[in-house]
Write a protein that binds this DNA or RNA. Structure first.
Lengths: 219, 219
DNA sequence: TGTATATTCAAGTAGTCGATTGAATACTAG
DNA sequence: CTAGTATTCAATCGACTACTTGAATATACA
């Protein structure tokens, strides 16, 4: 009996034993995706991605739902999000490597200051800052930080004219491992804006139980 | 770069991808152990246990420390305990199997009532109950619930005479998957005691941040 | 109906992992 | 130093895994 229980536990472990599956999971933490989108973003062949997703499905960490021509995968529930988050925190605490890799990257990029969530919410409430969600619009629609404005990185250059020059701008993306916000802040600063990067991404935001806003359109 | 990060993350996943390693981890959640003790309790050969422990060591989830003739393994820190706990919660929520296996067992044993932690602490404070730690004494010394008395399951029969007949008794062991407390309660009831089982084990107790008492002796 | 598209299935290969065995290493006690 | 003990190392075998390739389903649209 005891053996059976641990075997069940290990199903969770096996699901997160492959780097690519963790990458897929983190992508799914940002919202539902089709197989193709996931394959694309994780640099996998579609067949291979499908196979990994099948494993995640078998471990009940994700759900799949056929939407017409596409199959949409999503996290099974918020508990999975918390688990992934706990795992990331443990990994970061345990492996200097992870922190080091990120820090080296951040340093090379010129030490962009990071803004914390509590800090941000206070300033948002006072109307002191403009919050930018620089992820693709689809991800924005799946859920975003209250008050954030969707300006996908790819659109940023075109929308520069609409942004306030004298107000502070805080950009965020998927999370600490995502570099979209970093690039956005770089661009903004080059153009003379006062821009900073939000330390957390949407995933951490949710994991901490802070509110998420959903767009009415779609789904 | 991104690939490297996820590879690091996966090291944690790989560490908990094997049932036996999870079993070892849960044993270590109850306190430091030597290789031999772990091998014994997890029903592994010593060499095999050593190998698994090496994997856990490489993933930084545990630490090893040479104590004279023995090597003592222990959790790297409390964060690991929280992680293991989060993983168990996820597994239990996700796999009906785990819950079902346990419930079937509990039912077959005659529906022993379960006592919750908050409930227990209130009654302990009022001096209404006697709390028994039925794990091996070594585990008791490594840490136990405040006010608990060490009566290893193997010693229970011999110490029956010392237990109060008219006071309520609450027994606990390692955790939900551990059956020592169940057996203890059964025995006590057969002998006419008013006995109940504490829902949590030491591990859950700690994970919730409740206090743990340590014996002064050893280490 | 036929064609295009998204996803899954099936089979094959190279590589990894878990368990076993027997030897090697480190420490203790006499 | 020698004998004994706890642990690890090294080599092996069978099982499993990730990824690739090419074919098979299933749905949408014309």
């Amino acid at each position: 009996m005891k053996d059976g229980v641990y075997t069940q536990f290990a199903r969770i472990g096996k699901a997160v034993a492959a780097p690519k599956r963790i990458e897929l999971l983190e992508l799914l933490c940002q919202g539902p995706r089709t197989v193709e989108a996931l394959a694309d973003q994780a640099a996998l062949t579609v067949a291979n991605a499908s196979q990994h997703l099948k494993v995640l499905l078998a471990s009940r960490l994700v759900d799949a739902q056929k939407q017409g021509l596409f199959v949409e995968y999503r996290l099974a529930d918020e508990g999975v999000l918390r688990f992934v988050h706990a795992m990331r925190e443990l990994a970061e605490a345990r492996f200097a490597e992870v922190g080091a890799i990120m820090q080296a990257y951040l340093k090379a990029r010129g030490k962009l200051e990071r803004v914390s969530g509590e800090e941000l919410m206070q300033r948002v409430r006072k109307g002191e800052v403009t919050v930018l969600d620089v992820r693709p619009e689809l991800e924005y629609r799946a859920g975003h930080i209250p008050g954030a404005r969707s300006v996908p990185l790819s659109e940023l250059k075109r929308q520069l004219a609409d942004l306030p020059k004298n107000r502070e701008i805080v950009a965020y993306c998927r999370g600490p491992q995502c570099v979209m916000a970093i690039e956005a802040v770089e661009l903004l600063r080059k153009r003379g804006f006062r821009a900073q990067r939000l330390e957390q991404g949407v995933m951490d935001w949710r994991a901490r139980g802070w509110k998420i806003e959903k767009s009415a359109s779609e789904d």
